[in-house]
Nucleic acid binder design. Structure first.
Lengths: 206, 206
DNA sequence: TAGATTGTTAATCGATTAACAATC
DNA sequence: TAGATTGTTAATCGATTAACAATC
């Protein structure tokens, strides 16, 4: 299969293209070119064409890409033409904010269960969600066949939670805890730590 | 100056190293090696040594790196040995969550002003912050000499806000709005869009 | 000293870009 | 047709890794 041969760095740009295409569509455009897209994103047109060509010829010489069509193709490549169930672990300040964030559902990622280890929180509601005991994590995730989870617990508990999630069948983790996770190679992890981004920018400030 | 010659990809890893060193220190370690650090981070030891060597010889043959010393050196390189003032634009759901997040202050980034365009929000409190009208943005940021801002407004207003921030002197922007910003090349932008990370992982799921 | 690990060089690997034939 | 833009190849550029002398 071709999928194993496509560099991850290419995959990482597809969601960015998709987001820009959504925007162009919203603005009323129907067609775009690698040049226009590249200018918006600060990416060379050659790179965009090369990235897209891994998955097929989506454009037409002389005219460019039909935005609606390209969007649909990219959504299928990324497997985001479907809806995904997501588990959230941690219902503290950070977890609650994540649970309330509307951007997930709007783009096809539905949080369907929220876990916390604190008896104070279990049984309470966070946003629209009923917080469950972490003891239910394995059974709930296994039964529902959930493959994606978000971790929003303190750093010191994140690795343990990740291990539990993986044992229960989770294969993709979005980690908000400020710590690196060690996971088997068939499990994917992405990190959100806004402070890292700030620290990367201060280097360049006077 | 050497700084312009160091690849940005190297800079982007320094905060990750720093975070791992913090953790090692918390766990009671006093010394580490490129091998140990690399194993934790899933990065080759050669890469860590090479990255660090851009800034000086921080280690000792045979023994490795003193964690406390290396932390201090990296903090200086990244300019995070000091405290930074940060402006936040947008006090809606997302902006409020950002304002309440404790991780910023803990690591030296102090939100000192919050702006919103909605008269409903101006004058109210969000977390510990008094929300100001966006009309005050330019004067407030200029007077305080703020160089870092976070954008948490709807996508359609993000570019306009960025333009205002830059005109007022901001040189580093952390953008939570799901849209690419076009900025002059002496302005740094980083993006936080958790959905992008999820979309990048679903590609690999069955 | 023997063992370990750095800092650095050279070799390898991979990603980006330039260029252009194909073609709409 | 003339103009525009794709998809793709080859060339360039840059980043990672392997290896090892230096040295603690």
């Amino acid at each position: 299969m071709a999928s194993t041969m496509i560099p991850d760095i290419v995959i990482s740009r597809l969601p960015i293209y998709l987001r820009a295409l959504d925007r162009l569509a919203q603005e009323g455009h129907e067609v775009t070119s690698s040049q226009e897209l590249g200018k918006r994103l600060g990416i060379s047109s050659a790179q965009i064409r090369k990235d897209l060509s891994h998955f097929g010829g989506f454009g037409k010489q002389g005219t460019g890409y039909k935005i609606h069509y390209l969007k649909e193709q990219l959504r299928q490549v990324l497997k985001v033409e479907r809806e995904w169930e997501v588990a959230l672990v941690g219902a503290g300040d950070l977890g609650s904010a994540v649970a309330r964030y509307k951007g997930f559902t709007e783009r096809g990622f539905h949080i369907t269960c929220v876990f916390d280890s604190s008896p104070d929180k279990v049984g309470k509601k966070v946003g629209a969600f009923h917080v469950q005991s972490i003891d239910k994590l394995t059974s709930e995730i296994t039964e529902r066949g959930i493959q994606i989870a978000m971790i929003a617990v303190p750093a010191e508990h994140a690795q343990g939670v990740a291990d539990q999630l993986i044992a229960a069948g989770v294969r993709a983790i979005l980690n908000y805890a400020p710590i690196n996770l060690n996971v088997p190679e068939d499990v994917h992890v992405q990190y959100i730590d806004p402070v890292l981004h700030l620290q990367r920018m201060t280097y360049y400030l006077p």
